[in-house]
Amino acid sequence: MSRAEIVDSADAAVAGIEDGSTVLVGGFGLAGMPFDLIDALIRQGAKDLTIVSNNAGNGDVGLAALLAAGRVRKVLCSFPRQADSWVFDDLYRAGKIELEVVPQGNLAERMRAAGAGIGAFYCPTAVGTPLAEGKEVREIDGRTYLLEYPIKGDYALIAAHAADTLGNLVYRKTARNFGPVMATAATTTIVQVDKVVEPGTLDPEAVVTPSIYVDRVVQVTARQYTVQGAR
């Protein structure tokens, strides 16, 4: 279906996510983390998931809770190790989860490429480092680049501030982070918002994610988790 669907519950929003799916999960630490969608995904039960997210969980909530529930086979992220990433750390050290570390900008740009129909791109990040291993190298105008492939999701779970009933999204402050890019890069994009408004309410000039990228929207009660990943 091309038009976004406004659903009544987070459980309805995540219905049908299959075992083995690649799920893009928004948020930078806890800012922009789609807590309600993740909790619903835990109840829904999909397993063997590959999660693409900046971090690998903070504290015991959100992504950390999904990891603790044993549903995740592999994590692609830029920064797993933090002061409060004990859930991931224990799983990783026990060999129970696979990790692919991706530089933060490459993580974003590889998803952008997936959403924009780019087959691959040459990027200067990580040249000469261990993360360049196995990547095609090319010199262009005297600078060295690595070939990077898109990261496409079966699903994206993101949080935005508000949606209209068509699915246009606006975000709030740095909670925007990966949301707009992930929304473009998944087959099915599922969004939790603090409020759903009528079309014409959002300033069209201020819409960040146009409705064409959005499939399901659910309104949730805002949770004000205190940031705790500081290091």
Binding site: F28, G29, Q104, K173, T174, A175, G179, V227, Q228, G229
Partner: peptide, 27 residues
């Protein structure tokens, strides 16, 4: 909670601040 720095420490915005998504930030 929606406004942090890269270390996930809560910060403030100055007049003239601008927000953008991650792909733009790294571009």
């Amino acid at each position: 909670p929606d406004l942090t720095n890269a270390g996930k420490v809560p910060v403030t915005e100055l007049p003239g601040a601008a927000y953008f998504h991650h792909a733009d930030s790294f571009a």
